Amino acid sequence: MDFVHGTTIAKRKTAPKTLYHKSDITAVAVAYKQLVDIKMPAGTAPGPVGGGRIGHDFFVESMSTLTYPTVGHLEAQINEILHHLCDVRVDFKTETADGLVLCPSDLRDSNYIMIDDEGGLWAIDFGRTCFLPPSFVSYSLITSSDIFVKYVAWYVDYPRSPNLRGMEMASGQMVIFGDNNLGQ
C-alpha cells in the first residue's frame, strides 16, 4: 500500500452543495472504464481475487452471504427469486463467454478515487471490487442513487444490460425480505 498525497473528488468541490468539476468527472469516467475492461477468464468464480463473498450493491447491505463457485450458481439463485415473481430471467452465460469483468461497485466521491498533486488519478478503495458478469457493472452505474455515480455514468460508455430489470427485481426482493439467501 502506498501513501498518495492528494485529495478526494469530494474535497475538490468548491463548496459542499456545488457541482463537481467536469474535468474530474470525465477523468474518473475514463479511469473507471479502464478498470471495468480488466477481465478474468471464463470459468472463474465470481467474487474477489482469491475467492470469497461478493461485495456489491445488488446484495442486502452490499455483501453476499454466500460464496458462489460458478456464475451459474449466482444466475440460478437470481432466476429462482424471479421464478416466483414473473417470467423475467437473467442470462449471464452469454455475457461471460469472454470472462468476468472487474466491477468496482463502491464508486463514491469521498473514497474511491484520489487525485494526486500532479493530477494523476489513484483508485484507493477496492473493498467492494469483484470480478463479476458485466451486468453487475451496468447495475452499479444505472441503479445508484448517488449523484456522483450518476455524473460518472453519464460519461462511461458502458452498455445497458438486458439483465438489468431482472436484477433490480431480484435485489428488491432480497431487500424486502432482508435475506441474501433468498432463492437458495
Score class of each variant (00 low, 15 high):
V137P: 01
G172E: 11
G47A: 13
P159W: 00
I115H: 02
I142V: 15
R108A: 14
D87M: 03
K13H: 06
T14C: 09
G127D: 15
R108S: 14
D91I: 02
S110R: 10
L74D: 02
N180S: 08
L74A: 05
D57H: 06
N181Q: 12
A97E: 13
D117W: 09
L182H: 10
S171A: 12
Y158C: 08
M63F: 11
I142C: 08
S64T: 12
E95K: 02
I78R: 09
M167W: 01
G183A: 09
Y139S: 02
L132R: 05
V4C: 07
E118D: 15
V88Q: 10
G127F: 10
A15L: 04
G55V: 04
R108L: 12
K17C: 06
A97C: 10
K13R: 14
L121M: 11
V101M: 02
F131V: 10
M114T: 00
E95N: 03
I38Q: 15
P134L: 11
D106R: 07
F59W: 14
P41N: 11
Y139D: 01
N180C: 08
I81P: 05
G55C: 11
T96V: 07
A27P: 05
D87V: 08
N181C: 13
M63L: 13
K17W: 15
L19G: 10
N111C: 13
D146I: 05
Q77E: 01
L82C: 14
T143P: 01
S62D: 11
T7P: 01
Y68G: 03
G99E: 06
A31N: 08
Q77D: 02
F58M: 11
P104I: 06
F58D: 09
L141H: 04
T44F: 05
F3V: 02
S140N: 10
T7I: 06
D106G: 09
R165G: 12
V28F: 01
V175I: 10
L66G: 06
K17M: 10
T65C: 11
D116F: 11
T129C: 11
D2T: 04
G99P: 03
V36E: 04
G47E: 15
E168G: 03
K17P: 01
E80V: 03
K93T: 00
A97W: 02
I176G: 01
I25D: 08
P162Q: 12
Q77I: 03
N163I: 00
M169S: 08
S138C: 07
R12C: 06
V71E: 09
E95W: 06
L132S: 04
D24Q: 10
H83W: 15
V49D: 00
A27Q: 12
G127K: 13
M169R: 10
A153H: 08
S105H: 05
M167H: 04
C130M: 09
